[in-house]
Amino acid sequence: MSRVLDLTRQSAAGLRLLVALTVLLGLVYPAVLLGVGQLVPGRANGSLITLDGRTTGSSLIGQQFGTDDDPASQLPWFQPRPSAAGTGYDPQSSGASNLGPNNADLVKTIEDRRAAVASREGVEPSAVPADAVTASGSGLDPDISPAYAQLQVARVARERGLPVAQVEQLVEQNTHGRDLGFIGEPSVDVVTLNADLARLGSPQG
């Protein structure tokens, strides 16, 4: 058989096989998993959270709390990390800054952020942890480090007229140690933490 003819014959068999495999691996397999997923609907549907009966997003996906244009609007909330996803925490545009480790613009941005956080919290610039001045890989990081959370406790308590101890307790409740005690890093979920704050009522009201 000529090579070209054989290649055509093999391709034709390949196409038929591909269509059949597409049904098995591309339709049946994910459909079965959709069924299995509904046995754990909360997780399979994105760990959505509700506040006063309305869904306010996912506990896994970070949000903006207040806007950069109106810094005062940010003060009653624990602030998440800087985000490179769209204009910030936009799940339609996930991603990182992708700036290199010696990129001059990135160094400047980090220094500006450090000064801004230090002045917002009224602490020395050297007290600001790394996660507070860097953007995450996804741009949707729901977490901050326990150190960054601790840095924000006094300001949030003051803005909301809450006892510091109560805010500290909420931080504690939303802190996750390393998985199984050794995988990954300790973290504080800003989304669930701020949801708990919101449940206590609006600031000073």
Binding site: P129, S136, I144, S187
Partner: peptide, 13 residues
């Protein structure tokens, strides 16, 4: 400058 190589990394990881 940041005090750690956390640019582009997730806190949980």
């Amino acid at each position: 400058a940041a005090g750690g190589a956390m640019e582009g990394k997730e806190v949980r990881f």
